[in-house]
Design a protein around this nucleic acid. Structure first.
Lengths: 148, 148
DNA sequence: CATTGACCTCAACCTTACATGAGGTTTTAT
DNA sequence: ATAAAACCTCATGTAAGGTTGAGGTCAATG
């Protein structure tokens, strides 16, 4: 693939293999993403997948969101609000990445809280104490552990 | 269970059900942890699991380590350095939790870096740029994505 | 124009971290 | 003493996020 190019020298359409090479994910991952509704493209006369160049950005966005800790289904929902074949506008991108930034921030704060509690407990040899914050974290709901 | 108690009124040995109730994990999780070598106990005459009270601390430690992002096999390895039937000493606990603290800290730093990059890219409408740090993060090794 | 590499689909498999249920035994409570 | 609650083992299921392989087609190249 990557033969027909635009005047800028960039290929107009991409095969799965092209996308795999350039995005850093495998072909099977692209197939998988397609079954999960995360990416889409069209087929050529021979039933092979062809993608517009915007797929590359889309895959990059998916990977970033994964790094931020989102599940593929959350990512799919977020991507639903973006145009699929066309590159997203600045506004589109800001809205989505803003939400993701917040999710990331929440995760960071949770982990930081855990780290600080761990620091306290490393100091005090804790975990034997009935009121150790680490033993009954506020973010775990349901039947809480009894006094140990 | 929880009938025979010490003079302090605390039960001397615990059944799986007791441990489940008091630690906040299910019985099947305890079975599972046993198959994975994370916890152990002994059996009574009727082949039922019995645990010393120190199991409670052990399970608490496992859950904390999970929150910090460690896998069960990593946790198992770390726990190997602790006594199983006896409560760990302060030194034991400090060594282990110190390592975990570091792992946690690394995770926090990675996520923070990602967040900051995301902030930059939210501002600039990035991801179209060939040198966007989000598109080729330093922490992903191997064949890096080509210029998009 | 034949070959080889790239694609196709579909099913099965993998890892992590458990949950569920069947069929049978042991404890506990009345 | 008996019923109910709790346990036991072992097999199977679940969910996420893919990977692998078989069997067959398509396309780029000498």
């Amino acid at each position: 693939m990557e033969k027909r190019t635009t005047k800028s020298g960039l290929p107009k359409e991409l095969s799965v293999g092209d996308v795999a090479r350039r995005s850093g994910v495998t072909v099977s991952t692209l197939h998988f993403y397609e079954t999960k509704g995360l990416v889409s493209g069209y087929r050529n006369a021979g039933n092979q997948r062809r993608y517009p160049r915007s797929i590359l950005r889309r895959v990059a966005v998916i990977r970033i969101a994964q790094r931020a800790g989102l599940s593929l289904s959350e990512i799919r929902e977020a991507l639903k609000t973006l145009p699929d074949g066309r590159p997203p506008t600045m506004r589109d991108w800001r809205r989505m990445s803003g939400t993701w930034r917040q999710a990331l921030q929440d995760r960071i704060e949770n982990l930081t809280k855990l780290r600080d509690q761990l620091d306290l407990c490393i100091g005090c040899g804790c975990l034997s104490l009935t009121d150790c914050p680490l033993r009954n974290p506020g973010d775990i709901k349901g039947k809480s552990p009894q006094i140990i």
